[in-house]
């Protein structure tokens, strides 16, 4: 297939995934902010961390004076200045889709074009809390519909595999970003204020990756920071864990390599990174530095993205 088509498919999926991620971050931040302050509902902190997980703080400062619910929601949901705002994600996804109509199934096009059309109903006016929450639900539905339409309707060939690569790279990056911003509240040293506060911080992380229920099914234990980190980084049942994302990347890069009869840099990088995760153990990660581990992962994941691009997309 055309390199540009593969590039568009890849970025289309990345942006659809990112829209979902930003919606979840905002959703979780709202929940935390709604708590009485004795339970950790310390507004400014939560909005700052939502901003840090998703956006470009420097760009934010150019357009807003204060970090609060109103400004962060506006920046992350609707701002044109933020290339990762939900609105920008949907618009960019749709632009990518528009230039490769021929490579998309009708269902995929409908999912993304329909979202783009409906976006107009939300933007450009002040939404009430209820409306905003409805909006976030809608965004999650859009991502689900897009993902589902790709899964159900695309031919299982390189086009499909490139969309999966986009989803997996983006998802790994998102999960790692959350960990990067919040690693300190998972560290034992951070149990400094009181159980209930941290409990709600931890559950927020779980909600951000839609793993609140999953946690209990997997560990059948009360929420503990070490296990939260384990779930997000190493657990192979958890769809958004780093290990699982890498599994997806390796699988689809192998399918592409087999189909083209050639292997390259991206196959090598992906299997090395996966081997690194499979060989890891959560206790040792904590012992040698969670922050360093995550930073290293983000760097490697970016390198992998660049290698995929160099090998196939330009």
């Amino acid at each position: 297939m055309l390199s540009r088509t593969a590039d568009n498919l890849y970025w289309l999926s990345r942006y659809a995934e990112r829209a979902d991620f930003v919606a979840r971050i905002l959703d979780a931040a709202h929940r935390l902010a709604a708590l009485p302050s004795s339970y950790g509902g310390r507004e400014s902190n939560e909005w700052a961390s939502a901003l840090a997980s998703t956006g470009d703080a420097d760009e934010f400062k150019k357009h807003y004076d204060a970090v609060n619910e109103h400004t962060v929601c506006d920046f992350l949901a609707f701002s044109r200045h933020n290339p990762s705002s939900i609105r920008s994600c949907i618009e960019t996804a749709r632009e990518n889709a528009r230039s490769i109509r021929t490579a998309l199934t009708t269902e995929m096009w409908d999912a993304i074009n329909g979202a783009w059309l409906e976006l107009r109903n939300y933007e450009g006016r002040d939404l009430t809390r209820d409306e905003f929450s409805h909006f976030l639900d809608w965004v999650k539905q859009v991502s689900l519909a897009f993902d589902g339409s790709a899964y159900r309707t695309m031919l299982r060939n390189d086009g499909y595999w490139f969309t999966r690569l986009g989803t997996a790279i983006e998802r790994a990056d998102n999960t790692a970003r959350i960990l990067d911003v919040k690693y300190q509240i998972l560290l034992p040293a951070s149990e400094r204020i009181g159980g209930s506060l941290d409990y709600f911080q931890w559950t927020t992380i779980l909600r951000e990756v839609s793993a609140f229920n999953a946690y209990h099914w997997v560990y059948r234990e009360s929420i503990k920071p070490l296990l939260v980190a384990d779930l997000l980084i190493l657990n192979r049942q958890m769809p958004r864990s780093l290990t699982n994302c890498l599994g997806m990347l390796v699988e689809h890069l192998d399918l592409i390599a087999d189909s083209y009869g050639r292997r390259g840099e991206s196959q090598r990088l992906a299997s090395n990174l996966r081997a690194h995760l499979l060989g890891a153990d959560i206790d040792r990660i904590f012992a040698s530095g969670l922050h360093e581990f995550i930073e290293h992962f983000i760097g490697e994941n970016n390198k992998l993205g660049a290698a995929i691009s160099e090998q196939y997309l330009v």
Binding site: L2, S3, R4, Y260, R262, L313, V314
Partner: peptide, 22 residues
């Protein structure tokens, strides 16, 4: 057929090629 833009095509030794993932 492929829908190509100019950047998808290039010429080499008087022959036109398109850039593909393969």
């Amino acid at each position: 057929v492929e829908l190509v833009e100019a950047t998808d095509l290039f010429t080499k030794d008087d022959v036109v090629y398109m850039r593909t993932t393969e």
